[in-house]
Nucleic acid binder design. Structure first.
Lengths: 346, 346
DNA sequence: CTGAAAGCGCTAACAT
DNA sequence: ATGTTAGCGCTTTCAG
């Protein structure tokens, strides 16, 4: 760490002196001024103004034991997690909401298991009031690390349970994957489609699992051959579509677990000379702008409010923090609604 | 801000007591243990271990006046700044180097002029030891805000001078844009090309300006019609190439100010039935993996070590911080070398 | 409603 | 080499 930093700034003491009040009163004013008479409030405010006083964060943290900072943990098991547009939106929401709560965003970039120690120490060291993390894979170690150091944390996306057995209930914010999937499939049904296939996402991500569940909720007796496995990439979607077509040439609709795979499916369909939606209707999931708009035809999909989810993560965390010692009971997670966005593909 | 946070943790006092030494000695050991005898060091270390002691950051900051945190300012004048792969790499380098320096990365997301106040207050509030920012456009207000609050800051990319007149010299890290451009053009010359065009980047970004300067360094008497204006996007590259071809059908090479525009140029060339590199040789700039590898033919380009630049930004900042009061003289910036990466396009 | 005083946990002179 | 002693700047009882 560097040696030096902030040049000495005016202290509360100085403000108090200038305003002709005690430090205590000055402090009260700075913190909202409740219970201080107008004339004094004004005097202090003016002194603050004139001196350009800014409270010393460290001193305040030392006594209040809250530091107005929240860690956002970014794990990077695969490439590009950071430049994922999905991710960007969520972090943006988080950033905005954190600002609204006067808290700072401290970025914790986890590059691998080698970083776990450092992260645990940091989180356990009380440098932040809480943490926000994202559940990427079921085998992720993060959830257990987090519950070990007991720092209040909210997850983005329902965490898979590496320690489900250990009975730890981590609060999370997720969209209604299952309900959204149901809506997508119901829409296809309402269009009169009778052979609705599904291109599933990775089996180790809860979102994909929930979506396939939603699909099955509606199509109780779905033909297993109508479900094909993908991995959320465009390529896998194209491949899965090809497989489906081979197994069930008569299918007339497909619900893909995300937009990327849907766009891959569209490509395969086009190559086979099948018309969308006439021959095969296609619905995706996510409403990812970059995909959805450039697809041909424009993709009907299920939208989730990603930025809103980011904001909700913060709100939920703040609630947990404010509950303090008391309400130690498992904090409720929140599931946000999805909406079907009709475009041309279904 | 939340009310509560870290449950009470063991203090240095407790460690000292358990180890049977004074707080001062315990402190010395915790901070490296210089000048403390082995047996005591061991005792203290053990006590730390047993108690699971972690230093209280706030207390330490309060007295040392350094807080082990550096702000990374992300301005978002346009979309997607965050998901820019370029950006991601740089932040990754920063994150890694900061970790190596035991400092935390605090993310400051600036969404517009409305945030300027907040940022200035935060930066001026001494919450961080220093800041890292990126120079995006010459009309960016950030540089002046930063120099106003006088927080030690290092820029990524040479800042344009909104306050050049005010004589503020902001330290920065940038690659040798001009030299890299020269190398690119010289390469084209060495290939025997005689009519080398340039697709320039935005006039309000220093990198683009430096690159065109490099181009001119080599082609002292360059035909002005051989230079066309783009804006760093694929589309603009395609358009600029079309223009160039119209004005100077005989051109046999083009140096684009970045890879994106080079790929646009490639497209136009292909559409016109021109062969690359046989008819027209093409060189880009950046060596952006996602572009360079998918281009046809693979793009010859100028590589800059982006992650390394991120790391250098941190090192430079740390140096500035350590110099402290003394060396207030204009801190040296650093220019990193570029390398020409030969692929098939030139 | 306001002020006096007691720390929060740690480091850094200054003694010893 | 180790311990003693002041604070760092702020909030917060507790008196008045």
């Amino acid at each position: 760490m560097p040696e030096q930093t902030t040049g000495s700034r005016p202290t509360l003491e100085a403000v108090a002196a200038r305003a002709g009040v005690s430090r205590a009163t000055a402090s009260r004013v700075v913190n909202g001024g409740a219970g201080v008479r107008r004339p004094l409030v004004d005097k202090v405010r003016q002194a603050v103004e004139e001196l350009g006083y800014v409270p010393n964060h460290a001193a305040r943290t030392l006594v209040t034991r809250r530091n107005g900072a929240v860690a956002v943990i970014i794990a990077e098991p695969e490439f590009r997690i950071f430049s994922d547009p999905f991710f960007e939106q969520q972090v943006r929401g988080i950033s905005r909401e954190l600002t609204a709560h006067d808290s700072q965003l401290v970025l914790l970039w986890v590059e691998g298991p080698g970083d776990h120690d450092r992260i645990a120490r940091y989180l356990g060291g009380g440098h932040v009031d809480g943490a926000l993390a994202f559940s990427l894979h079921n085998d992720d170690e993060l959830p257990s690390i987090i519950s070990r150091v007991k720092v209040p944390t909210v997850f983005g996306g329902r965490p898979g349970w590496p320690g489900a057995t250990s009975g730890l209930a981590l609060p999370y914010v997720d969209c209604d994957n299952r309900g959204g999937a149901r809506e997508a499939v119901r829409h296809l049904v309402s269009l009169g489609r009778e052979h609705i296939a599904h291109i599933a996402g990775p089996r180790d991500q809860t979102s994909a699992l929930d979506r396939i569940d939603g699909y099955r909720d509606v199509l109780l007796d779905a033909d297993p051959d109508l479900v094909s496995q993908g991995d959320f990439t465009v390529e896998s979607g194209a491949r899965a579509m090809a497989e489906l077509l081979e197994r069930r040439p008569g299918l007339d609709a497909v619900f893909a677990s995300n937009d990327l795979m849907a766009s891959g499916a569209l490509r395969t369909l086009r190559e086979r000379g099948l018309r969308v939606p006439d021959d095969v209707a296609v619905v995706g999931f996510d409403d990812m702008a970059s995909v959805v708009e450039s697809t041909d035809p424009p993709l009907t999909t299920v939208r989730q409010d990603i930025e809103g989810m980011g904001r909700l993560m913060v709100r939920l965390l703040m609630r947990v923090l404010n509950e303090g010692e008391q309400h130690t009971g498992a904090p409720a997670s929140v599931i946000t609604p999805t909406t079907l966005v009709r475009r041309a593909s279904a």
